[in-house]
């Protein structure tokens, strides 16, 4: 089947198989490998992308369902030298260890801050609770999101 979608601001036209997932076309066809596959069953959030302003697990979205939608992946945020504020905060707070969860974490945080630029601690934790991390104990990740939200008083 043919689908049309916007990925990181660029219009894409693709011929996809009905059983292909959004995750597959991002990684295998568009080579946007920043989106990770952790569990493939909607549990870990490593495959998080933003679709029309909302986070989705791209392993749970069929490519056909993304037809006509706008998708942002981690490649659509900052670049080396001009990082997105959430990416900068992750670096400054030391919120990255192995990095496997990081793209999904950053996108969940971005989607939250786009919706509410000044979330409280609880709201941050709830927004990030669909993203598993095995390395950091979440401590620095929460601090990074707070920092990005401008909540950290220095």
């Amino acid at each position: 089947m043919k689908i049309e979608l916007k990925v990181n601001g660029v219009d894409r036209r693709l011929e996809v198989e009905p059983e292909e997932r959004l995750l597959d076309i991002l990684r295998e066809r568009l080579h946007l490998t920043g989106t990770k596959e952790g569990c493939g069953e909607g549990e870990c959030g490593a495959c998080t992308v933003i679709m029309d302003g909302k986070t989705v697990n791209s392993c749970m979205v069929l490519a056909g369902q993304a037809d006509g939608h706008a998708v942002t992946t981690i490649e659509g945020l900052g670049k080396r030298g001009s990082l997105h504020p959430v990416q900068k905060a992750f670096l400054e707070e030391g919120a990255v260890q192995c990095g496997f969860c990081t793209p999904g974490m950053v996108l969940s945080a971005k989607a939250l801050l786009d919706r509410n630029p000044h979330p409280g601690k609880e709201e941050i934790a709830v927004a990030m609770s669909g993203n598993l991390c095995r390395c950091t104990g979440y401590d620095r990740i929460l601090k990074a999101v707070e920092r990005a939200a401008g909540e950290v008083e220095q």
Binding site: C44, A125, L132, D139, L142
Partner: peptide, 17 residues
């Protein structure tokens, strides 16, 4: 053998450290 059956802590399960 999957994260839906073998649960690991989420951010909501981890304490203040």
């Amino acid at each position: 053998p999957s994260l839906s059956q073998y649960l690991i802590p989420t951010v909501l399960d981890t304490p203040e450290i």
